[in-house]
């Protein structure tokens, strides 16, 4: 065994290198045939404990079962998802990085307001089960009872009620659109800005502000502390049936849908690896329709509805187009 020379070692390692580079150079279709062969990263561009983090962790076992490989949650919070989105785009398009995120309105907003170095079309949706809507609400013991009353009061005196809202959000756009439709001058309103849905909800429930415009889903745990005035949706919302629709207030206003959360990949992956894309779509569909998954996630107030990639992509791009249309309201 001692006649194992340095030259031999060189030969062997060179051979190894050749084999490895051969593997790398292999047509990607062939590699896809056995996909997935190793754990898949799920990029969540939010901190541990947020909606997307909980959604990914709760859904994980069911998706793992369909894919046959473990999933690893990678939290990349910061800059309104821009850091996580950039990170996802920098990963190789090999199917080992997928995203669980509030695609709309965060991706369009980073593009429109933060000059993020990517396009809305760089991301493709697999399925966006969670659909949130802006809810106008007041504290449960507040004096205002209906949205019509809010409009009436503000028309008389735009500074009579204070408004809590998150700037540069779908909620902000909806608020401005509604007041424009009611011919109230938004520049005279007492608008209090909150850097997140949570603080804005607390301020609403605690009567710090008279009316809050915030994503409705997050209000569910505080349901007893608030009175819903109007929800910015076209049809009755499944998870909050007692919230009156904005249409019922007699106000004719256009509105933007709120957060759309769920599973996404990069468009590069979809275009370059159609087989892997198909595998992922099938896996998410099967897992979303798994009765056990539906039951478990429902208990945690998480959504599993299967809309599919086409409908999800359409909803996402529609939201992005509306955001672009109303971007001037947000600045």
């Amino acid at each position: 065994m001692t006649d194992f020379t340095r030259r031999d070692a060189f030969k062997i390692s060179a051979g190894g290198l050749a084999a490895v580079s051969g593997m790398v150079a292999m047509p990607s279709i062939l590699r896809a045939a056995s996909y997935p062969t190793r754990p898949i990263n799920v990029i969540v561009p939010f901190a541990t404990g947020g909606y997307n983090d909980r959604l990914s962790r709760a859904f994980m076992p069911y998706l793992e079962k369909e894919l046959g490989q473990p999933l690893v949650i990678v939290n990349k919070p910061g800059a309104g998802t821009q850091l996580g989105n950039s990170y996802a785009l920098n990963q190789p398009a090999d199917g080992y990085s997928i995203m669980c995120t509030s695609a709309a309105p965060y991706i369009p907003l980073t593009v429109l307001l933060q000059n993020a170095p990517y396009k809305v079309e760089d991301f493709s949706m697999l399925n966006l089960p969670s659909r949130d809507y802006t809810l106008a609400a007041t504290s449960s013991d507040g004096p205002v009872k209906t949205f019509a009353e809010v409009i009436e009061k503000l028309k008389k005196d735009p500074s009579s009620l204070s408004i809590g809202v998150q700037p540069a959000s779908a909620d902000y756009a909806n608020m401005v659109l509604a007041f424009q439709a009611a011919e109230i001058d938004p520049s005279k309103l007492r608008i209090v800005t909150y850097d997140g849905g949570g603080p804005a909800r607390n301020a609403t429930a605690g009567a710090q502000v008279d009316v809050g415009f915030v994503g409705g889903e997050g209000f569910l745990p505080l349901k007893t502390k608030i009175r819903p005035l109007a929800i910015f949706a076209a049809e009755t919302v499944e998870w909050y049936p007692d919230a009156p629709l904005i249409g019922a207030s007699g106000l004719k206003t256009d509105f933007v849908e709120g957060s759309q959360r769920g599973w996404a990949i990069t468009t590069k992956l979809r275009n370059e690896q159609p087989e892997i894309y198909k595998t992922l779509v099938t896996a998410v569909e099967k897992a979303s329709k798994n009765p056990k998954a539906i039951e478990t996630l429902k208990l945690q107030e998480l959504a599993t509805t299967w809309y599919g990639p086409e409908a999800s992509d359409k909803a996402y791009l529609d939201n992005a187009a509306k955001m672009a249309k109303y971007v001037n309201l947000l600045k």
Binding site: L220, P221, L222, T224, K225, L299
Partner: peptide
């Protein structure tokens, strides 16, 4: 939440 319990008034 991950244990299907929602803290809050209820």
């Amino acid at each position: 939440m991950m244990h299907n319990v929602v803290p809050g008034p209820s």
